[in-house]
Design a protein around this nucleic acid. Structure first.
Lengths: 136, 136
DNA sequence: GTTTTTGCAAACTGTTTGCAGGATG
DNA sequence: CATCCTGCAAACAGTTTGCAAAAAC
C-alpha cells in the first residue's frame, strides 16, 4: 500500500503522493509528469509543481526511477527488478513497453572493461510500427 | 572531405558547415551543440542558431545522428556503422565512449516480436568511475 | 508547534523560429 | 539573381524554484 511505501522512506503520507503512486501502479508502464497530472484531474486538485516535486522526492528515495526519452520528456516508473524500456513508433507515436531488460549481461562486460560501478542505464528503441508500415 | 559530404546531400558548401563537420571528425565521440560552438571560437564567428541549424540539417540528411542524453543535452556524431554510446560517471561527469554497439542482436529479436521496422535506438550507461569510487 | 508539503507565478535550460540582411551556385 | 544560409532576439517546452499559506505528525 502507498502509505507504507512513503513511511519506509520517511516522506510524509499525503493524499496527493498516494494518488501519484497509485496512478503509476496501475499504469504498468513509464509515465510522464504530464500524463500523471492528467490522470489526477477529477481525483483531486493538484498543481504541476506538486507532481514534479513528488516524483522528484520519490526518485531520490529510489522508489521510482526516471528516464529522459528522445521526445524530450522524462518518464517515471517504479524502480523494481522488472523496469521497462520503450519501443516508440516515429510516425504514430505508439509506445510498446519491452518487458525484460536485456542489458544485464552487457553491464557485466562494462564493469570488467572499465572498472566503473554501473548504477543505471537508459535505453530506447525507435522504429515504425506495423500499422504505419502498411500505409505505403 | 567536408565539401563532398555537403554536396552529396545538396546542402550549400559554407565555411561554417565545413568547420562544424571537421570538429566532429576530430572529436571521435559525440559532442553537444555547446561543445561544438565553443570549438568554433577563434576559427570563425558563428552564432548558436547556425550551429543548431547546421546540425539539424545534417541530421535530417542522415550525415549525422543525434541522441538526447540524460543530462538533457543533445549529442551529435557521424551516422556511420560504428556509432558510439556513452558511459557517464554520475559523480565527476567523465564520459567514456563505448566502441561497439551491442544492440544489433536485440534489435533482431524486437523485429520478430513486434513487427516494427527498427530505425534507431538510444542507449546510455551511468555509473561511478574508478577514481570516484576510490574517494571513500 | 515544528517540519514538511503545496500552489502560484516567475525563472531557468536547452533548443527552435521569424525575419531581414548576406553568401552561395 | 534565385535560393539558401546566417545572426539576432524573441519564443518555446519541459522542468525547477522562492515564497507564503496549508497540512502532517
Amino acid at each position: 500500500m502507498e502509505k507504507e511505501i512513503l513511511k519506509s522512506v520517511e516522506l510524509k503520507n499525503t493524499k496527493k503522493r498516494q494518488i501519484i503512486l497509485s496512478i503509476l501502479e496501475k499504469a504498468h508502464k513509464p509515465l510522464t509528469a504530464e500524463e500523471i497530472y492528467a490522470q489526477t484531474i477529477g481525483q483531486t486538485r493538484m498543481s504541476f509543481s506538486t507532481v514534479y516535486r513528488s516524483l522528484g522526492a520519490l526518485t531520490e528515495k529510489q522508489i521510482l526511477m526516471k528516464e529522459l526519452m528522445q521526445d524530450g520528456k522524462t518518464y517515471y516508473q517504479f524502480n523494481n527488478n522488472n523496469h521497462k524500456h520503450l519501443l516508440v513508433c516515429s510516425i504514430c507515436g505508439e509506445i510498446i513497453p519491452i518487458d525484460d531488460c536485456p542489458l544485464h549481461k552487457l553491464e557485466n562486460d562494462l564493469v570488467s572493461k572499465t572498472g566503473y560501478i554501473i548504477t543505471g542505464h537508459s535505453l530506447e528503441f525507435n522504429g515504425i510500427c506495423p500499422k504505419c508500415t502498411e500505409k505505403f
